[in-house]
């Protein structure tokens, strides 16, 4: 079996894997980082979004082997100890989740959205940018509010 090495949440990891291993399987099953979810497994729902070299990607549609040498950040990598990332805090403050299944993907997508689109996000931009993330509870209204607030809070904390 080939070996894959990458940095996940700042830590170097390496493992022998079946070439078929998807990045999400590597994260959840090999590294036990189960915060990244598998919703649809068909690249529609975005529950599995993580950052690979800073880009938000669907880890259910990425081979782990293609991430050789990459820097991966998952939802577990956002908080600093007990201190939530401002986007996580904003989701809590704004009740931006109901069952919470889609939340890790929503937050990873939102953090990258802020990096690309800036801290002052209007509702239309947020809804367009969240196109690849589905919430089965349909709680989009509060999610959009959370993203807007999280984006501003990220600016205040220099993120």
């Amino acid at each position: 079996m080939p070996t894959v090495s990458m940095t996940v949440n700042g830590k170097s990891v390496s493992a022998d894997i079946d070439p078929r291993t998807l990045l999400v399987q590597f994260l959840r099953e090999t590294l036990q980082l189960t915060g990244t979810h598998v919703g649809c497994d068909t690249s529609q729902c975005g529950c599995c979004v993580v950052h690979v070299n800073g880009d938000a990607v669907k880890s259910c549609t990425t081979l782990a082997l293609t991430c050789e040498g990459a820097s991966v950040v998952t939802i577990e990598g956002l908080a600093k100890g007990d201190e939530l990332h401002p986007m996580q805090a904003a989701f809590r403050e704004n009740h931006g989740l109901q069952c919470g299944f889609c939340t890790p993907g929503m937050i990873m997508t939102s953090v990258e959205m802020v990096r690309r689109k800036g801290h002052d996000l209007d509702e239309h931009t947020i809804r367009e940018e969240l196109e690849g993330n589905l919430c089965r509870c349909t709680g989009y209204h509060n999610i959009v509010k959370a993203v807007a607030a999280g984006a501003k809070a990220m600016a205040a904390q220099g993120k």
Partner: peptide
């Protein structure tokens, strides 16, 4: 094309 995560790849 697709959505932002798809366009990233």
């Amino acid at each position: 094309i697709g959505d932002p995560a798809v366009r990233n790849k």
